[in-house]
Amino acid sequence: MKILRFTDILVYPLLKKNTTAMQNHIAIYHHASDCPMKNITHVHTGKYEISYCLEGEKNYTLADKNFKLKKHMAILIPKGVEHSYSTPANSDICSLEFSGDFIGHSVIEELCPAGLLDIFFRNTIFDFSDDIYYRIQIEEIIKKCIFEYRENALALYTIRSLVILLLVLLSSFLDKKRHFPKTENSIMKIVNYLNENYFADISLYDVCRKFSLDYKSTSKLFKKTTGISFIDYLNSIRINKCKDLLLNTPQSIISICFQTGYNDLSYFYRIFKKITGSTPADFKKKSISQRQGKTPVTELKL
Rank of each mutant, 00 (worst) to 15 (best):
D92K: 14
L10T: 07
N123V: 08
N39H: 12
G293I: 06
I164V: 15
F230K: 07
G261K: 04
E148Y: 14
K182C: 01
I138G: 01
L4Q: 02
S171P: 01
K294F: 09
R209D: 14
F283C: 00
I231G: 02
V168D: 00
P88T: 04
R209K: 15
T45N: 10
D8R: 08
R209F: 11
F211R: 13
S255L: 12
G104A: 01
H44G: 00
P181S: 04
Q292G: 08
Y157G: 03
K243A: 09
D244Y: 15
I141H: 08
I40G: 03
Q137T: 02
L170E: 05
K284N: 02
L213A: 09
L302M: 13
R122A: 04
N195F: 11
L10Q: 14
F230C: 07
G277V: 07
I164L: 15
Q251T: 01
G293C: 09
G56M: 05
A27Q: 14
E110C: 03
R178D: 09
L62W: 02
G115C: 03
E151C: 05
K38G: 08
S91W: 06
V43P: 03
D206A: 13
Q23E: 14
T183A: 06
N192M: 07
P280K: 05
I9Q: 08
S289E: 13
S99Y: 08
I142Y: 06
S278L: 03
S84H: 09
N235C: 02
S255E: 14
M1C: 05
C242I: 01
F102H: 04
Q137I: 04
G80K: 13
I119L: 08
S217N: 11
S95I: 03
D92R: 12
F258E: 13
C35K: 14
L10Y: 10
